[in-house]
Design a protein around this nucleic acid. Structure first.
Lengths: 206, 206, 206, 206
DNA sequence: AATGAATGAGCATTCATTCAT
DNA sequence: CATGAATGAATGCTCATTCAT
């Protein structure tokens, strides 16, 4: 049952600013207190506004959470893309993909603490699948594109692109996950280096 | 204020059976409806009992969730251990670790759908850390033990055990995660084979 | 809706012992934790029995509470009576009434802490009135009897017996009440002496 | 774990009016049905509002009960003070203290029926002591002040102020208590006259 | 654009009570 | 006599959501 937005016009400047402000506060609160403890009132308290205002700017909690997730994904995606694009060689691109992923993660810990919590906010397999398409499809597509460039540059071996994209992205996320639960137990830089070396070696000829 | 349990004696047979039954129903419900939609009433409805009975057998929701998580981890841990122990060679042990991890995941999808949801149930960094110790420390310890055996058998190269354990476990979990959100997008068997080959090659001497 | 006891025979010895034991544990628990925090389970825990057993020996909570109240009142009544009866002179009897009241109170603090809590357990004015008849009527009757003896002995002035009984009992209870809430703020012995002197002077001729 | 209020600003006009309204309804309900039978739902029903609104205006049940108790004590205290202050002579002040106490009690029966019930709402000796300080300390302090004025006016005998304050307040409360349980059994006016005469005689010279 | 009063459904939890064993 | 499993109603409390101002 998708609720239609009453507002149909394009958002004003102040409207967008408020939404961004609220989303950031929400991510902060979720990272600090956990998703289940994060109510509109709690988010509003941290901002010095009322919870009614949050309801005014978002079409319900689902809208807020969805927007928050997309904010995380978009920011990280843009960061990674800029680093990958800066490289010419496909091997360097893959190295940049992995390393910039970890860089962004390390610099935005609260985003990923929140994200892990938000995984539990989906109530149906449809929502889970939608998240998958928003989160993983673009990542895997980006990796596949790098593989194709590598093939064109004749520097990569032949490989099952889907499987390879899955395991590379999985390795990044899985290490991130351990680091979210206990930052002392995991050294992101070491893991980043290890994964990059291993995967670059795996896909490159010779 | 920590509530003291009124029950203190060791559990009876019927007590244990009920707890197990309720935990399984809870995991089922969480996997189907999501953690936030899973109430005592919902779990009870699925079992044909009253929610009061759940409260009777568990010291609150936290106890139930904790027990459920440990159930998942223990069962998987036992499964993996039996397969690893069946191998003599350290390389074969690592191969068994990775492959049996994925086998168990594939055969118990609902457990891992639930587990991903339950990651969002921790409200403090203390709880997160406690989970980390219960979930990841044993896995990494198991992997490190395999590395040490490989070193004794003089078949493994020298490596940073903590980093390697982190990335291997991370890769397994990260692939599982994508499969939880969309089973169509990920082929666990292919990923299992790819990861096993790559990591065994990585740690073995020529 | 008064529930009829299923048991009709006279109670066995063990039956009576159990009831007494449970009542004493209930008073103890009420005094320590407050009436609202005192459940059958809590009482049972303190005794090392199960709550089912309490339900077996009492016809519901109301029966237990009523029995507990009567236990307190009967014991105190018997104590006072023995001291009053030991005196011949009516003035000495009144002095004994007041002083032994306070003595009993001081020696059985938990009983009166519980009693004050139990005043809140009556849900209707009928129950309140019934308590009044069980608690205050006998006390006032006892005092009136002393007044009549004083009149017969021609040592007491003429007075409104009901009013005088009310204020004497009231003064005792009111001081007890303050002492229940804060034993440091009230010296029972001083209050006892003061009240005894004043009331004896008030009722005696000359 | 003390819950922090989300509201922090000073209350608005409508806020205060609602709180007062809810407190009065709560006292009414407690007086009619007893404390243990008085739930948020019951209070709300009597007011035609929802129980959520009560939770909105009060920080939990404890806050409501505490506020209700303070309302009773403050109103009675103000009433007594105005009558005592209207008298010049210390003896007249004491007479006014006792008589106005009973007047207020008689005119606000439901408040005191509720108060007696609420004595059982404290769960720890700390709460009991806090109540003692809020309820009895000011009363005894007021009486002691009258004693000191009497001493300055050279119309009162030398006496132990703490003991005398305790017994006077105790006598008032104890008579009130009997009247709460059975208004037929006690004539407040007679008791008021008797106590006033006796205590004034006790403290005045000659 | 923003507030805050009000709602109503839902939640975990408590507990007296029942009853088969 | 005594137990402990099970019930079901009730309770305080939370919270997204609505809406008049």
């Amino acid at each position: 049952m998708v609720k239609k937005s009453i507002k149909s016009e394009q958002p004003t400047f102040i409207e967008e600013a408020r939404r961004k402000q609220i989303i950031d506060a929400a991510l902060q609160t979720i990272a600090e207190q956990g998703y289940t403890q994060t109510s509109f009132a709690e988010i509003a308290k941290g901002l010095g506004i009322t919870k009614g205002l949050i309801a005014y700017h978002f079409n319900g909690k689902h809208d807020l959470i969805t927007s928050a997730i997309h904010t995380i994904l978009n920011r990280q995606g843009a960061y990674i893309k800029s680093h990958v694009d800066a490289q010419e060689d496909a091997g360097d691109k893959l190295d940049a993909y992995i390393k910039s992923s970890f860089e962004y993660i390390e610099q935005n810990r609260s985003h990923f603490v929140a994200l892990v919590d938000l995984w539990g906010s989906f109530t149906s397999s449809e929502e889970k699948e939608a998240f998958s398409q928003a989160a993983y499809d673009p990542c895997r597509a980006h990796l596949k594109k790098i593989f194709r460039i590598g093939k064109e540059q004749k520097v990569f071996v032949k490989l099952d692109e889907q499987v390879m994209a899955t395991v590379i992205q999985g390795a990044i996320d899985g290490v991130m996950l351990q680091w979210v639960f206990d930052p002392e137990a995991v050294d992101l830089k070491d893991a980043s280096r290890e994964l990059s070396e291993m995967f670059v070696k795996r896909v490159k000829k010779n």
